[in-house]
């Protein structure tokens, strides 16, 4: 029986690399979370057995609470995977920046090898300087979008909602992340200021 894994990682390079590794095992079906989908929505749509998550994802908190929230609409509860006998494994996972959720009510499966592969890969990424930056990415991305939005609001004399929608629409049209569109916008603005 195949095991369905949902991989939620906004670092597309890392997600790609991990998905390649996992796909080498024919018993695993790997689904990558698309940019704009929320974690809960994706779990609802894809009904995975296991969710591997970048711990920096802001919507991870929502996943932790689905059991208690009637509104989550998930039929099968989901819980953080914890190996009580192997605390080092868990510490390694959090230190590397990855964790795993199990969808309950399915036959128990051995998640440890999967998590170990993920840890190894996340560590490799952590070692590069690029990854040091990525660790803070979620937060600095938000600053970039905020700044771009503020300038847009001033330029276009419009409100917050309109500015947000403009960036989001552009991002969707160009199939890019909102932060990249915002960064482009900022670059053009600074060029204009300089000239």
């Amino acid at each position: 029986m195949t095991m369905k894994i949902l991989l939620a990682d906004e670092n597309s390079q890392r997600a790609g690399a991990l998905s390649e590794i996992l796909k080498a095992d024919p018993s695993l079906e790997v689904i990558r979370l698309e940019g704009y989908e929320s974690l809960i929505a994706a779990v609802k749509t894809h009904v995975p057995d296991i969710v591997l998550v970048d711990i920096c994802r802001a919507d991870r908190d929502g996943l932790d609470s689905v059991r208690a929230l009637s509104s989550s609409g998930l039929e099968r509860p989901i819980a953080l995977f914890v190996d009580e006998d192997d605390e080092t494994l868990m510490e390694d996972a959090f230190a590397a920046g990855v964790c795993s959720y199990n969808v309950m009510d399915t036959p128990p499966r051995n998640v440890k090898p999967l998590l170990r592969s993920a840890i190894a890969l996340y560590r490799r990424f952590q070692e590069t300087t690029a990854e040091l930056k990525a660790a803070r990415q979620v937060l600095s991305d938000r600053e970039t979008v905020d700044t771009a939005k503020k300038i847009f609001m001033r330029n276009e004399r419009c409100g917050e909602a309109e500015a947000y929608r403009w960036f989001r629409r552009r991002a969707m049209q160009q199939a890019r992340k909102m932060v990249d569109v915002a960064a482009d916008y900022l670059r053009v603005q600074t060029k204009d200021d300089a000239s």
Partner: peptide, 17 residues
């Protein structure tokens, strides 16, 4: 350590982060 969410703070306390 400015964390992106409360889950990260709680997990950090438990798993030695």
């Amino acid at each position: 350590i400015v964390s992106p969410s409360w889950a990260n703070v709680a997990d950090g306390l438990v798993w030695n982060g």
